[in-house]
Design a protein around this nucleic acid. Structure first.
Lengths: 357, 357
DNA sequence: CTGTTAGCGCCTTCAC
DNA sequence: GTGAAGGCGCTAACAG
């Protein structure tokens, strides 16, 4: 199985080649070549103070010559931490649609994690495996130091397990708390209010909502914000003006069609995702319905395309990159500092007015 | 440093709690509880045939009770493979723009890797670190079984190192070969020809090209295809009709503006990425230039938005998901089968005609 | 069929 | 300041 049979000749010198394959130098090789013990090499390379300066220099030099790289796996076995964080994206393969949003969060995570010297592992999970194996067993088996969970549905079994997680975890979008669990999300209620208030200020009185599916936490929150804003200005809440879609362009299209059949016809449509708004925009154009003259449109997220289409999409910007960064900060507070879970963080979204309103 | 001091009491039973923290059961705990040796546990759980059926059952049962999960790190240390592949995206944090394209490739990778039981680790690298550390040192240190390299510029130092890589590696977009290196890419020459031939068939004679930057391998190939197609139909190659941009919407915008100032003005524009085409489309709309009546536009990639904008973007589709899947297949051929690098794979793109031509 | 014996490469008390 | 010894949790010969 192993690529290399144990080398019989434990000769001295940089045992660099064995047949065709390069054998990486171990700490022992360095020790031998530098004429010190492995202990000293370990200390010298890991920056402990109790090593004579000239010894350290010699060790470093030899290590460089030998192209020595500490074996992270071996180190992890003894230190019991891997400098690795798991990124668990529920249904990553099917819910592709989410990922315009996700990507930016991922950048934030990746950038910040880099600063801490951690790497990110994309856990390969799927609904079946997910049903069988507690989420943290994935992580525990791999000795991960923590995890970030993304795109969890509220009815996912993991939600239950999460609060009692023994592993430092940050959940995106769902406000879960536990001694080892924290969260980061946008203030979706506020964001939705921003959108609706903007529409109301523009004179709209019948405002439709095309929402995400009910298993997404954010859908509830955005609906709530929508209702709040309406109530605030004394507008009635009309259930027939709410359409439950699924965040996809196709869903947005259907939602637009359905809502525009109501009478009196709404003069504005608020979508719980930009992708839906974009799908609807396309539909409206096909139907020859003028935006924003006949129907105003507001999206949610502010994905890059929002400003690339014409007319440019008015939308509620989520601080996606910052969500990633914040997730890591919260996580590192638990992992590195060993604190128990800090309070979750709720980031304020902001309205970006373009040409669809 | 370690979270748990060595437990002094090595009592029997499922030593499940120590203070607040749950201590995962080890193979030794299972062995003890099942009344067998650790070897037997290992064999039973790993499906070796030389274990009595009732012994196996007992072991499995005990393991389940104890919530035993093998420590992957420990296993990796001895087996010398980690069931983990590195994904190295050059400049992931700054070249954000690439990633509409990347994401779909990533899905392909992730899905296929899951079938093989592997996970993917996102290597955190940056230009600085990249200049200092040979690419495979990242991987070797973490004992990765292989790597997939994405978005490499032709002038990146890694390109040199790659051919001699001791680690199974698949490069996306750059046709590198070595005993342990293979590649996957689209047939960019052919793709560009498809685009230009389509335009020519539509009667266009002056066709501009807004290309990517010169450090991208694909730019050269697409330029080549552009020239080939021109030559084929006896059209002259006019250097002033080629603009070197950078794959971004902003670059596409600039390219469109520059090229449309040439006289006689080109009647068609071919962009080396959809993102550039989209940026240009936006510009053309602002300028009141009718697409496709006054200027026809063709993109490259077929990212999801291409069909979401209106007019829908005519473009050259790359099989992005399939590129990911293929990359993994090539890689696994080296990693699991232990073959030396199989020939690289070049996937045929296809023309998708929408409304901009 | 099962157990004993050695490590994998590294870090870490504990002596010197 | 440095080294010797032990062990992290697991797999893999090699005996029985």
């Amino acid at each position: 199985m192993r690529r290399l049979p144990a080398a019989p000749e434990a000769g001295s010198g940089p045992r660099l080649r064995k047949g065709e394959v390069e054998v990486p130098a171990t700490i022992r090789d360095v020790a031998k070549a530098a004429g010190v013990s492995v202990t000293t090499v370990s200390r010298a390379l890991n920056g402990y103070p109790d090593v004579a300066e000239d010894t350290r220099q010699r060790v470093v030099k030899v290590a460089t010559q030998l192209h020595y790289r500490p074996n992270i796996v071996a180190r992890s076995l003894v230190t019991r931490h891997t400098q690795t964080i798991g990124f668990l994206v529920s249904e990553i393969s099917r819910a592709r649609i989410w990922h315009y949003f996700m990507l930016q969060v991922l950048y934030g995570i990746q950038d910040r994690l880099g600063e801490y010297g951690y790497d990110l592992i994309l856990l390969n999970t799927n609904p079946t495996r997910q049903r069988e194996i507690p989420y943290f067993d994935f992580c525990l088996g791999r000795q991960l130091d923590g995890a970030i969970v993304f795109n969890l549905r509220t009815d996912d079994p993991y939600v239950q397990q999460l609060t009692a997680s023994p592993l430092p975890t940050v959940v995106v979008d769902i406000p879960l708390v536990g001694t080892q669990v924290s969260y980061v999300r946008s203030d979706n209620v506020y964001g939705a209010r921003l959108a609706v208030e903007h529409l109301v200020a523009l004179g709209h009185r019948r405002i439709g909502l095309v929402n995400g599916h009910a298993q997404a936490q954010v859908s509830h929150e955005r609906l709530q914000g929508y209702r709040q804003a309406l109530e605030e200005v004394g507008l009635p809440f009309a259930p027939e003006l709410v359409y439950e879609a699924d965040f996809t362009p196709e869903g947005g299209r259907k939602g637009a069609r359905a809502l525009l059949e109501r009478s009196p016809r709404p003069t504005a449509l608020f979508f719980a995702s930009d992708l839906m708004a974009l799908g609807a925009l396309r539909y409206l154009q096909e139907q020859g319905i003028a935006v924003p003259q006949e129907v105003a449109v507001v999206g949610f997220d502010d994905i890059e395309l929002a400003e690339l289409v014409s007319p440019g999409l008015t939308t509620v910007r989520q601080r996606r990159y910052e969500m990633g960064v914040t997730a890591v900060d919260l996580l590192m507070d638990m992992v590195a500092q060993g604190h128990s879970a800090p309070a979750g963080r709720t980031l304020p979204p902001e309205l970006v007015v373009r040409e669809t309103t």
